[in-house]
Amino acid sequence: MKSIIINRYFLKKLGFTIAVSSILFNISTAQITEKRTTTIQLSFYKKANISKTIVGTVKAKNEEGKFLPAINAKVNFYLVNNNAQTFLKAAYTNKAGKANIILPENLPLDTGHCFTIAAKIENDKVFEDAVEELRYKEANLELKLAPYDTSRIAKAVLKTIGKNGEVIPVQDVEIKFYVKRLFGFMPAAEDYTLATDENGEASFTYPKDIMGDTAGILTVVARIDDNELFGNMEYQAVTAWGTVLLKEKEPFPRALWEPYAPLPLIITIAVLFGGVWFTYLIIFYSLYKIKKEKSDEQIEFEAIIKQ
């Protein structure tokens, strides 16, 4: 499986570094005119029995003889069937030296109900040609939860296709049970690995003290890692087995560190300084009265006018 990083770091590191480093690299290799020894590693990820991904990790030897991730190498992916190769897609490696493709949904299988994928580096300016193949059998991993289950038992079922095309269970495959968290999968318990039985089933009891969301909902995950026959497989299911998270009653309380001040503080400041400013107003009113005050002569004069 693959994760996607669309972020500034990526944009900068990938966008700029690839551009810059490839230019520099081209210049330096043009002088050397010797291609770098290159290796490819392939892994297969199958998720929810729908999405199938191939990840190719490309490493190339540097001048000191160390294998480092090859950046911006073009990897061609082929579907191999009875020595006939069908071109699927090409992908460029990222800064970690990884190139990914998503396989088509209806991948034609060979007689052994397997598929073979070849990844090749061909005629690259920098990297030597390299080939790697992988062959995996088609299988289905499923996680079954009983509705309204209080026993918290998750049953993972692994099935594949038999010789005659019938669906058969797979025995003795290690299945790991996780809980999905924000940034990764957390092992559900200390001992979180179970092998499938003769029915291809592994039943795992989830512990009680796992935090869920505000409705107690969490995602449970069953996974097979690096199986010889099937590669990596993963299946997720949603259930309300989690501890209910109590919502914060007031995420933004009136507090000293929050935008809104505690009322006692506002009242204290308002009373203290309001009082002072009220006194100022009295003074300003007195000044106004001083300004409006008539002189003795004026009063006399007005009295005469009135008479």
């Binding site: 009295i282 003074i283 007195s286 300004k291 409006k292 005050e293």
Partner: peptide, 20 residues
């Protein structure tokens, strides 16, 4: 501000001074 030194003005001024 129109100071004429009348009794009222002096009174107002002294009162304001005390408050201030």
């Amino acid at each position: 501000i129109g100071w004429k030194g009348t009794k009222t003005q002096w009174h107002l001024l002294e009162k304001s001074m005390t408050i201030m």
